[in-house]
């Protein structure tokens, strides 16, 4: 199943989703399509004015352009997702996840999709690490069962 990860660029979540046999939906994949498109010359990421305008689907014109551009990249992934894993309290949120308002909006859009969403907390020690892994594994195995039915 296609599982959206939040933070959408997280190495840890991307790895765990793949490890347990599902397809992570990430910023990296969305951007790869753009950076590989040789017809667009808008480095570094080829997020274009068109993208930012498409972002109006998710947020009005009074919302800063950086938020609309981010939502234009993530919105289609959220729409495509069968499930999502959200890691809360992650101290590592730079780059595409650098804007807190955009991040709040992503969580809200996931909520509105009515798909299974697992919320885990960023682990601070090994015990919490065990909990994160156990919960993610259980959640993803649950998705397998759902798919089998």
């Amino acid at each position: 199943m296609k599982v959206f990860i939040d933070p959408p660029n997280s190495l840890i979540l991307f790895d765990l989703i793949e490890r347990f046999g599902h397809e992570p939906l990430s910023t990296m994949a969305a951007l790869q399509e753009r950076v590989d498109n040789i017809e667009i010359d808008m480095p570094p990421m080829n997020v274009t004015l068109d993208d930012v305008i498409k972002g109006l689907k998710y947020a009005g014109i009074e919302v800063p352009s950086g938020i609309r551009g981010r939502l234009a990249v993530w919105g289609p992934l959220i729409e495509e997702a069968d499930a999502a894993v959200v890691m809360e309290g992650a101290p590592f949120s730079f780059g595409c996840v650098g804007c807190e308002r955009s991040n709040l909006m992503v969580k809200y859009l996931l909520q509105r999709r009515n798909i299974p969403v697992l919320y885990v907390t960023y682990p601070e020690d090994e015990e919490q690490g065990k909990l994160v892994v156990a919960k993610v594994k259980e959640f993803l195995q649950g998705l397998d069962k759902k798919e089998a039915n």
């Binding site: 960023y122 690490g129 065990k130 994160v132």
Partner: peptide
């Protein structure tokens, strides 16, 4: 953070 995740996978 991978230390903790690694420990989680081992467990």
């Amino acid at each position: 953070a991978l230390t903790n995740i690694s420990a989680g996978l081992d467990a």
